[in-house]
């Protein structure tokens, strides 16, 4: 029988089986922590850093990604403090600057309270979230793609540069990639790049909602947000 631990997330007492992550526990209780690289039932690598939470230990708060933090008895987690919101907004801004032509990333950024992006747009079309890599290795056991290179040259690639014969061509990597969900309609030309209003209207549907409130974004459905995955 699974051991159940009790922890406090945002003041709410929650119970979760041992071994689950704080992110999963929070989502099950309807506390939406923004996340991008997390796919339900896959290993988490904490790549996008959006799901950061404050883990209060002995009166001191530590900032950790909740997708890689396992639940423990008596844990105190805060997901929506001023400090977290500030950091999260900054991270989301950097993600948008890295890959501005993605609706998923922009939606998530708006959800994190980004109004404008202060960083120069890089237009890389990849935020190295590792969703494709993990779906290939965890779900399909193919391991046909992976991270190659290091530092600034890190990228997703095939072994030895060519598509291997054992790639099942299932296209799961394409399906889960946040870049392939309905590209943004707004202008992402250099110089006139801005977050498009289409994404913002998503948030404005729930007008008056504070930032960092789950708005059941359609985005989540698109790239299998665990909120939808649990249903």
């Amino acid at each position: 029988m699974k051991k159940i631990v009790t922890l406090t997330i945002d003041g709410a007492t929650t119970r979760a089986p041992k071994g689950t992550t704080v992110l999963d526990a929070a989502i099950e209780y309807g506390i939406c922590i923004p996340h991008l690289c997390h796919i339900p039932n896959m290993t988490d690598i904490g790549a996008c850093r959006l799901c950061i939470v404050e883990n209060i230990v002995d009166g001191r708060s530590r900032i950790t990604t909740s997708c890689t933090l396992d639940v423990q008895e008596g844990m105190v987690i805060r997901t929506n403090t001023e400090r977290i919101r500030h950091l999260r907004r900054n991270i989301a801004e950097l993600l948008v600057a890295q890959a501005p032509n993605s609706r998923a990333v922009q939606d998530m950024a708006v959800r994190c309270g980004v109004k404008e992006v202060r960083y120069p747009f890089r237009n890389d079309d990849c935020i190295l979230c590792g969703r494709c890599v993990r779906i290939c290795s965890d779900m399909w056991q193919a391991r046909a793609i992976g991270f190659v290179g290091r530092g600034a040259e890190r990228r997703v690639g095939f072994p030895f540069g060519d598509r291997p014969a054992y790639c099942k061509e299932c296209n799961s990597c394409v399906d889960t990639c946040p870049m392939t969900i309905v590209p943004c309609e707004g202008s992402m030309k250099p110089g006139e790049a801005h977050l498009c209003g289409g994404c913002e209207s998503q948030l404005s549907m729930a007008s008056g909602a504070q930032e960092a409130m789950c708005v059941m974004c359609r985005l989540g459905e698109g790239f299998k947000c665990s909120r939808y995955g649990w249903q």
């Binding site: 290795s137 391991r143 046909a144 793609i145 992976g146 991270f147 190659v148 290179g149 290091r150 095939f158 072994p159 030895f160 291997p164």
Partner: peptide, 12 residues
């Protein structure tokens, strides 16, 4: 070891 892991290590 999966090919991608060998390639990744050699590349790293």
């Amino acid at each position: 070891v999966p090919e991608i892991e060998v390639y990744r290590a050699a590349n790293f």
